[in-house]
């Protein structure tokens, strides 16, 4: 695309977006009114589930800026979310890739049909990412992670990056689309370590030639 055409495309996209913003003109979008509407819409919600209808500060900021926060807001989010990351007591960040692969396949957990729980929560990585060449049923919302560890030379520092990203993606990518698996209690420290194992072990199918 030529520079001029690209510019025109950007402008058109922008004006379509701006024109579609019905919310900006309305008071119906006030947070208090939204919460009232949400409570009315989920009358069967158990008391301990009501917090799920509310967002925290980071979610509210990402919603407000539609996942494109201004630099200053992004810095605030990154600092706040980084502070929530907890590490394994023994400091080992690379776990069992075989368990990691099972977690990557499983989307089980936290849905209203998953109670009482019959197995551990999954990470459902394949829903959004390609991880191995063998698994053809993979999503494309996130980037392909094939050869993830090999590309990064299996370095210790990169294992930490992968751990942090899985534990709380907003720490490095504010308003990332990826769930904050560790911070939100979707996965345990042990499970996150196994997923890092899947990404960073030389024997893992992710890194096989």
């Amino acid at each position: 695309m030529s520079k001029k055409r690209r510019m025109r495309f950007v402008l058109l996209t922008y004006s379509a977006f701006a024109g579609a913003s019905y919310a900006q003109q309305m008071e119906a979008t006030d947070e208090g009114r939204i919460e009232t509407a949400m409570h009315a819409a989920f009358p069967e919600a158990r008391p301990d589930w009501l917090s799920r209808l509310k967002g925290d500060q980071t979610m509210r900021a990402c919603s407000k800026y539609r996942d494109a926060p201004p630099a200053e807001v992004a810095r605030t989010i990154a600092a706040r979310e980084s502070a929530t990351i907890q590490y394994p007591p023994d400091g080992r960040l690379i776990g069992d890739w075989k368990k990691g692969e099972q977690l990557a396949q499983s989307g089980y957990g936290l849905r209203f049909t998953d109670y009482p729980p019959t197995r551990e929560n999954g990470g459902n990585c394949y829903a959004c990412h390609q991880l191995t060449k063998e698994e053809v049923s993979h999503g494309t919302v996130g980037p392909s992670l094939v050869q993830y560890g090999k590309i990064r030379r299996f370095s210790e520092a990169e294992a930490k990056v992968a751990y942090d990203k899985t534990y709380n993606s907003h720490a490095t990518s504010p308003c990332s689309l990826m769930p904050r698996f560790g911070t939100n209690g979707v996965l345990t420290i042990e499970q996150i370590r196994d997923i890092v194992g899947l990404l960073m072990s030389p024997e893992s199918p992710v890194n096989r030639p």
């Binding site: 019905y22 919310a23 003109q25 939204i34 967002g55 919603s63 539609r66 939100n184």
Partner: peptide
């Protein structure tokens, strides 16, 4: 307006 806001509103764990 409510629908548009909800569409972009992050909710849940």
């Amino acid at each position: 307006a409510l629908g548009e806001t909800l569409f972009f509103r992050r909710t849940g764990p």
